[in-house]
Amino acid sequence: HNLTITQGKLFFHYNPKLCLSEIHKMEEVSGTKGRQERNDIALKTNGDQASCENELLKFSYIRTSFDKILLRWEPYWPPDFRDLLGFMLFYKEAPYQNVTEFDGQDACGSNSWTVVDIDPPLRSNDPKSQNHPGWLMRGLKPWTQYAIFVKTLVTFSDERRTYGAKSDIIYVQTDATNPSVPLDPISVSNSSSQIILKWKPPSDPNGNITHYLVFWERQAEDSELFELDYCLKGLKLPSRTWSPPFESEDSQKHNQSEYEDSAGECCSCPKTDSQILKELEESSFRKTFEDYLHNVVFVPRKTSSGTGAEDPRPSRKRRSLGDVGNVTVAVPTVAAFPNTSSTSVPTSPEEHRPFEKVVNKESLVISGLRHFTGYRIELQACNQDTPEERCSVAAYVSARTMPEAKADDIVGPVTHEIFENNVVHLMWQEPKEPNGLIVLYEVSYRRYGDEELHLCVSRKHFALERGCRLRGLSPGNYSVRIRATSLAGNGSWTEPTYFYVTDYLDVPSNIA
């Protein structure tokens, strides 16, 4: 807008934040220059609390790290170098490059900038070799853009010569660093050979998330399962459950009422301010606690030095998902009996873990797994792929695949051998790939016309006998059925096997 004052003059007093240069501009645009008398524009009460600059400061050096910015700028000295009290560095987070010096300023003089007072450097006698002032900004957020400017702080001049310097606002972004852990990993099994893994992005990506790394490792069953005799009275049979499938998407929606109208769909109840505040506090606490764990609990591995020492970490090797089922080394339970199943799973520490690289999504279907087997899954978020990966501390989750139908069934015939004193040795093959492992066998036998009897055969007993022995049988026709019990439950009964026990007292003698 054009402003013209045809008559009258300007009068400025007691404006401590208004620089004289701005008042002189007002004289020019209003056409009143030359009308004012000496005392109409006070030299001592206008701009006496402001830094009124008329020179431009330029930054000469900028260096960044993930949490620091090192700045240096060209030296500046007023005509009387004693008038320079120091520099004021202003900075704040700036997602967009549209910041002005006066953003967030209120009537009390406060604003949204963080201000650092910096002492002037030592003055050199040689004007050509003056030290460049600077400042190291610490405690910054990774991968965050900051708006920065600097200006001088000078003393009051009796001659009211307006001098000083100020830089333009520059924008500097800190470097990326390792992201925080992925949030809320959930693993479920939808079949006997697959596990579905879902997660949420890290709360602090500290860069642009480029991919996720998912490692999985087959877990050995508890050692007590191999040692305890679950045929003993009072000892509860062990059981394991597989990871249940995901709930429906509708039930997972946030901010939804727990109660549904019987007449149909209901609208979600909005969260109160107290609920939102509580969630923010919980989120802040979780982030602080995660940072504490990362800094205190997890110790970084030592990389190899120039002395030739090897990095103890196993090298990563990509495998196809079809090879995942046989990740671990199978060892027989008892070496003397080769027909026992290889369900003991000690994992070799030198073995390469299978892994998958996930790009542009937060889910993965891990296939080719062994049925009813526990897996430990390790999830890392990465925001750099080359020249070397920059990934987060791992988040861990466990899951067990679903049982395989008929995996616990005894394959092959049940054979028998009759000894003296009416002892019958029953023999059968253990299931080759049971659900988890076989903890015991149930032997059901009966003599024709009598009630059915049951015998429990422990895992250890089966390994020693290759089956079991029935003792003290009365003469007669017998039928026997056997079924295995694994961590997933009972298998199917075998087809009945028949044998006849004679009275050993009636056996004919070869003595003449």
Rank of each mutant, 00 (worst) to 15 (best):
I438T: 10
R483T: 01
N255D: 10
L235W: 11
W216M: 14
T386I: 14
N477D: 07
C391N: 01
M427G: 15
E290I: 13
R286A: 13
V439G: 08
E247M: 09
P244Q: 12
E404G: 11
H294E: 06
C269S: 06
F499G: 00
S363T: 11
G234T: 09
V359T: 11
S257R: 07
T343N: 12
H294T: 08
E351Y: 15
S223N: 11
P508L: 06
T347E: 11
Y375K: 01
S305M: 07
E420Y: 14
Y445P: 01
S458G: 06
S315K: 11
E310R: 06
R466M: 11
E442Y: 11
I410N: 02
G207L: 03
S492M: 11
I410Q: 03
A309N: 12
T485D: 10
T241D: 07
H211T: 04
T241F: 11
K287I: 06
M427A: 13
D250M: 12
E465Y: 11
K233V: 15
S257A: 13
D273P: 15
E260N: 15
K317Y: 08
N208D: 02
P403L: 08
E362S: 09
F226Q: 05
C391T: 02
V443N: 00
E378P: 02
N477A: 06
E282S: 08
F372K: 01
L369R: 02
S458L: 09
D450W: 08
N255Y: 07
P387G: 12
T497W: 10
V397A: 12
S479E: 10
L277T: 07
T303F: 08
Y504P: 09
R370E: 15
Y498L: 07
K406D: 09
E265P: 06
N360V: 11
A335F: 09
F285D: 10
T343R: 06
S304K: 15
E260S: 10
S268C: 15
G449V: 00
L455E: 15
N383Q: 07
N326I: 12
L277N: 15
E465P: 01
R466T: 05
R313W: 09
T307M: 09
G489W: 03
E351S: 14
E351P: 11
V327F: 07
L453R: 02
T373H: 10
A395H: 13
G472H: 06
Q256P: 13
V393G: 03
P338K: 06
E356Y: 10
A381E: 03
G489S: 06
N208M: 07
E221W: 14
R481E: 03
D323A: 13
S492A: 14
P413T: 09
V443F: 01
E495V: 03
F285L: 10
G234S: 11
T401S: 04
S458V: 05
V296P: 10
V365T: 04
Q275M: 09
Y448G: 00
A330S: 15
S320K: 12
G207I: 05
H416V: 14
F246Q: 09
P245I: 13
A394K: 13
L437Q: 12
V299I: 12
A220T: 14
Q275T: 12
S492T: 07
A395Y: 11
A463L: 12
N208W: 11
C269Q: 04
S315M: 13
A407R: 11
G325P: 08
D291Q: 12
S486R: 02
F298T: 09
E249V: 08
E281S: 08
L470G: 00
F246Y: 12
E279H: 12
I482V: 13
V443M: 06
K361Q: 07
C269M: 06
A463Q: 11
K432L: 12
Y478V: 01
S304D: 14
L225R: 09
L213H: 05
N510P: 10
Q275L: 08
S243Q: 09
C382R: 00
G234A: 08
G436E: 03
G489D: 03
N421K: 12
L364G: 09
D408E: 02
R376K: 14
K287M: 08
W216N: 13
E351A: 03
E404V: 10
L228C: 15
P434W: 01
P475Y: 07
M402C: 15
P496I: 04
G264P: 06
N360S: 09
G234H: 11
I366Y: 01
D409S: 09
M427F: 11
N255S: 08
S284M: 14
P434I: 04
T272N: 10
I438A: 04
R390M: 04
R390H: 03
V329D: 15
V329G: 14
H352I: 03
I482W: 00
A463I: 08
